[in-house]
């Protein structure tokens, strides 16, 4: 259908123009990252003077030197890993058995339970009642609170339930003949057959945990519990109007902006490392998500 050699002249011109436009959009997507990296490796003076456009000016590692000496940077980096790994495991512990139960025809009240869960996608109590509830539960400033309170969402459960429902009965029957109970059927039949769906959900969980910011900012007070994103936010809002810092930075080769840029780079690197591996899953996942109920 699409064959360059069969293209008429007009079609060739059209294809070339489109390729150039896509190229421009791609460069525009990538450029801010390159620019931030360039700022992070530039001296504070060069950055302040507005000299950094594409490559580092007066290349230096001063900004990185400043952040790796800050123990808070490492603490929040570690916390981000704890929230991501702990949160994702917690999510799967709820979602996999929950979705399995909801996919069973013999479950009494199945329609009700499905509606009970789906309703939360349409109606949400909002920020204030959620916050007050967390306070009543004594989960303010608690790492476990963050891990538990954001473990489940209706969308992920429904996505996996749909996938489970599509598994043919015959797979299960063989296991039942061998005397398997529901836990065994789930673990030995459903989970292995649902690897793509579970991988997709795991990916959604990891991404939302890694990026989670708002509630961590609202719920956590102790510095030793905050994740990297909250630390970055503090850095952005504090550095620029901190006089003491201004004096220090004049002597050194970094500035508020180069330090911010360096933290951004450090926080993006893990995403860039795993990104190529996850790509095939999210394309599948977004399409799975489109086939609801």
């Amino acid at each position: 259908m699409q064959n360059w050699n069969l293209y008429a002249r007009g079609d060739k011109i059209f294809a070339i123009v489109v390729s150039i436009l896509i190229g421009m959009f791609t460069v525009a997507t990538l450029y801010p990252f390159i620019y931030i990296a360039a700022v992070s490796f530039s001296s504070g003076f060069a950055a302040q003077a507005g000299k950094v456009v594409l490559t580092p000016v007066d290349a230096t590692l001063e900004a990185y030197g400043y952040i790796i000496k800050d123990p808070q940077f490492w603490i929040s980096y570690r916390n981000t890993f704890i929230y991501t790994i702990g949160g994702t495991i917690m999510s799967l512990l709820f979602i996999i058995p929950g979705a399995y139960a909801l996919s069973r025809r013999q479950l009494k009240g199945r329609r009700f339970f499905n509606l009970f869960i789906a309703f939360t996608m349409w109606f949400n109590a909002g920020l204030i009642p959620f916050f007050l509830n967390m306070r009543d539960l004594n989960l303010l400033d608690s790492m476990f609170g963050i891990i538990l309170a954001f473990a489940v969402n209706a969308f992920n459960i429904i996505l996996l339930r749909n996938f489970f429902e599509a598994i043919p009965q015959s797979f299960e029957e063989a296991a039942r003949m061998d005397g398997a109970n529901d836990f065994q059927v789930l673990w030995k039949v459903f989970v292995p057959l649902s690897k793509p769906a579970i991988a997709t959900i795991t990916l959604f969980c990891i991404v939302s945990r890694w990026n989670g910011f708002f509630w961590a900012m609202v719920l956590l007070q102790s510095e030793e519990k905050i994740p990297l994103k909250v630390f970055l936010r503090h850095t952005i809002s504090n550095l620029s109007d901190d006089d003491e810092f201004a004096i220090v930075q004049t002597a050194a080769g970094f500035s508020a902006e180069t330090v911010t840029a360096a933290i951004i780079v450090c926080s993006i690197i893990p995403v860039l490392i795993v990104y190529p591996f996850i790509q095939k899953y999210f394309e599948k996942g977004i399409l799975l998500g489109g086939v609801k109920e």
């Binding site: 009970f116 939360t120 539960l137």
Partner: peptide, 19 residues
């Protein structure tokens, strides 16, 4: 299957319906 469903239902009650 009810045992498997229970934690999820409790979670929805505690974190989404109680608010």
């Amino acid at each position: 299957i009810y045992a498997m469903l229970l934690p999820t239902i409790v979670w929805f009650i505690v974190f989404l319906y109680k608010p």
